[in-house]
Structure formats: C-alpha cells, structure tokens
Amino acid sequence: MRRRPTFLDTGLPKLSTDQAASLIQPFFVDEIWNAVRCCDGGKASGPDGFTISFFKMYWDSFKPLLVSLMEEFHRSGEISKGCNASFVALIPKKSDP
C-alpha cells in the first residue's frame, strides 16, 4: 500500500475554487506564444540543434505543431520523452583548470 503524506492545516494560502479550476483549462494559443516569446532566445540550442530564437522567428510555421503538442499534453498529461531531453556541456573558463 502506497503511503502519502498529509498536510493538515499548514497555514499556507489556498487556491480559490476559480483559481483551481483555471489550472485545468486548456492552453490558449496566446499563452503558448507568450511563453515562447518570454524565453531568452540566445541560450544554447536544444537536442534538436535549434535555439528559442529560431522558434520565435518561424513561429507561424511552428505554431500548429506546438499547439498540437500542448493539446496532446493537456489531454494525456504526458510529454514525449524526447521533448524533455537536454545535454549539459561543461566548458572551462580558464585554460588548463
């Protein structure tokens, strides 16, 4: 049997019914665009080799794909394993560290 912790009267603020309901609403295209737009585009590329700047520049082409991806996530609650992959490279700032 799986045991879960209980949090009885922790004194933490609680969500209102409306706030809780808003967390399970489908994503709006504007919300997805705002999330992409707010990301720093100059950071390192993802596993596919593309930076966020690339997706921003070609948003009109990628919008249907990203919206479909988010709709599938909302429906199933799962994201494809490849979407969350990342690579970390340690680059020394000094020669011969």
Rank of each mutant, 00 (worst) to 15 (best):
G49L: 05
W59D: 07
S68I: 07
D60R: 14
E31W: 07
T17A: 12
W33C: 06
M70K: 05
F27M: 10
G42I: 06
I24D: 01
R75F: 02
V67Y: 00
K93F: 10
S22C: 02
P92S: 15
G42Y: 08
D60A: 11
V88A: 07
S95Y: 10
A21P: 01
S76A: 07
G82D: 08
P92Y: 08
E31M: 09
S76K: 12
W59T: 04
E72G: 07
F7S: 07
L8Y: 12
E71R: 11
F27S: 02
K94N: 11
G41S: 12
V88G: 04
L66V: 14
F28A: 12
S86F: 07
P97W: 08
V29L: 04
L12H: 08
Y58P: 01
D30G: 13
N34Y: 12
G41F: 10
Y58N: 15
L15R: 01
E71D: 13
W33P: 02
C39I: 11
C83V: 01
F55T: 00
C83P: 00
S22P: 01
E72K: 15
F54P: 00
G77Q: 13
Y58G: 03
C39P: 03
G49V: 03
G77D: 15
E71F: 02
L90W: 12
K81A: 15
A89D: 08
